[in-house]
Design a protein around this nucleic acid. Sequence first.
DNA 1: ATGTCACGTACAACGTGA
Length: 279
Amino acid sequence: MRLATWNVNSIRARVERTVAFAVREHIDVLAMQEIKCTPEQFPYAEFEEAGYFVSAHGFNQWNGVAIASREPITDVEHAFPGMPGFAKGHNGPDAPQEARAIGATIGGVKVWSLYVPNGRSLNDPHYFYKLDWLSALADYTRSTLEANPDLPMALVGDYNIAPTDEDNGDPTVVVGATTHVSPPEREAFAALEQAGLKDVVRPLVPTGFTYWDYKQLRFPRNEGMRIDFILGSHRLADNVTGAQIHRNERKGEIPSDHVPVVVDLDLTGPDDDDRPMVF
DNA sequence: ATGTCACGTACAACGTGA
């Protein structure tokens, strides 16, 4: 299975380019973030003509997540258990949820497409929402993998965190001054690893950014950030055979500000026992 | 110079979010 994640920054603005990439790179499962539309507005036809099923989740022009897959998508969820919501100046389990997570089972793999809240600034309610959201995601991960330690599970998407100093090349993003690099955010990311997940791209692609701001010639200057990740349970991580960050997708006509991150999984190995694997 | 985008509202230019 070839699995990809991509913050597309509006699927309606970029459907042609998105599908072309998926076809050209033989992507089996594409997790998208920031589709910026409702399911009713999603351009399904272009995906279906290319042989993909799609499950989309969105409430309005903000956020929105989706999964496209060559194999059927089952057991779709529109939030992970305990996912907090957000409204102006108000976050927590009683606030309305946003469209930032879609989960499904595909070919025996539990896949989550995640769009972690941005945080906006270090004293903004959105920042505390971001930390709460990540804490709840770690709780979900821990309890899921305690109940089923051998579950092949991928939590992929735009985490809006640069885990190391080398993951930030944007001179306006500074520890102590902005989001994405603050110690609490980095601790929240590390907690996901402590809950049983591994960054399955980093060992194969140790350097490189996944996002460059549109402003101030960030891409030509290569002043980007590494904030899009594919995190996997041990069962997933043990079966990765390749990984790529498709930097060239930041070039050309109307690019997203993010590029696709891809992993190849061989889930038909000797320790696969009796689990049905489609790919 | 938040020197760029995308979307909604409303039909021009601004507000919102990133």
